[in-house]
Amino acid sequence: MENFKKSTFTIAIVMIALLTSFSSNAQGDKKSSAILEAMSKKYQQIKSFKAIFTYTPKGEKSLKGEATVKGMKFRLKMAGQEIFNDGKLMATYIKETNEVNLQDSDPTAGGDLDPTKIYSAYKKGFKSIFLKDKKEGSKNLEVVQLTSTNKSSQVDKVEIEVNKADRSINSWKIFQKNGQEVVYKVEQFQPDVTVSDSFFAFNAKQYPGVEVVDLR
C-alpha cells in the first residue's frame, strides 16, 4: 500500500509538471503535438492555480485530491498525505502516523518526487500520437496518447483528454508497467489564485506532536 501511495503521488506530480511546463519537444505526430502545444501554452500563461480532482485506481472507488501550484512551488493533498514544496524544502506529511519527512527540493537531491527532475525525464521520454475525438456531455474532447520510451520509467503510457473549446485538461489515465492504472479527472480548476509563499511551507506548529524525520 505504501508503494502504491508513493507511486500515486509521483504520478500526480508528473501531471503538475505537465500543467506548468510541458514542452512539445516530445516526439509525436503533427496533430498530437499541436494539441499538446496549445494546451501547454494555456497553462504556461497561468501564474498560479488551484485544482480539485478525483483519482480512481483500477477496480477501486474514486478519491479526491487537491493541488495548489505557484511557479515551482506546490502543495498537493491526496491518499492521506500532503506534500509541501516551497522551492527550497519538500515536506511530506503522513496524517495516519502524524509524521513529516523533510527532503531537499534541489533536483539533484529531491529524488523521484522533484517536479523539475520529473519534467526533464518526461520531456525526453515519451512519444505522442492522436487517438480519437470524444464526446462527453456538452464537451468535445481530443484524446492524445503518450507512450514511454524510457525503459527505467514506471509509467508505460498516459492518455490525456483535452477540451477542444478552451484547451484545458479534462482527464488523464496513467498505465503503469506493473499493471496498475489510475484515472485522474479535473472537477474544479481555479486559475491565477492569490496565495502567499508561506502556504507552500510546512509549519510544524500547526501539527501538534508531529514527528519530524529529516532526510536531508
Rank of each mutant, 00 (worst) to 15 (best):
K173P: 04
I118D: 05
F130N: 06
G179F: 11
I174M: 11
T149Y: 11
D133L: 01
N178F: 07
E161D: 08
F175K: 02
L102H: 04
A121S: 14
Q145S: 06
S171F: 02
G111W: 05
G110W: 11
T108F: 00
Y122T: 15
F126C: 07
K177V: 10
D106N: 11
G111F: 04
E142Q: 14
G179I: 09
K185H: 10
Y184H: 11
N163L: 04
T147H: 12
A165D: 04
W172E: 08
F130W: 12
S105N: 04
K123N: 14
K135P: 00
Q176N: 13
R167L: 13
V158Y: 02
Q176K: 14
I169E: 00
T116P: 00
F175L: 03
F175W: 03
N150M: 13
Q145I: 01
D112T: 03
D166A: 05
V186R: 04
S168W: 07
R167Y: 12
T149M: 11
G137F: 02
V143G: 00
R167W: 11
D104E: 14
V143C: 00
Q180L: 14
T108L: 05
N178W: 06
Q180A: 14
V144F: 02
D106S: 07
K173N: 07
S152Q: 06
V183G: 12
V158I: 08
G137W: 01
S105Y: 00
I129G: 08
K173M: 10
Y122I: 15
E159H: 05
F126A: 10
K124H: 14
E181W: 07
Y119V: 15
N140T: 09
L102N: 05
K132T: 01
S153A: 12
K151V: 05
S148R: 02
S120N: 15
E142V: 05
L146F: 15
D133Y: 02
S171C: 00
K157W: 04
A109G: 10
V183Y: 15
Q154E: 13
N170T: 06
N150V: 12
D156L: 05
F130R: 12
V155R: 04
T147M: 12
S171E: 01
A121K: 15
S138E: 10
W172C: 06
K124V: 15
G137D: 02
K164W: 04
S105A: 09
N170Y: 09
F175G: 00
V155N: 06
N140E: 12
N178E: 11
N178M: 09
K185M: 11
S128P: 01
L131Q: 10
S148P: 01
V155E: 06
K151L: 07
R167S: 14
N140W: 02
N163H: 00
S138A: 13
K164S: 06
I129F: 09
V162K: 06
V143Q: 05
K117L: 13
W172G: 03
N178V: 05
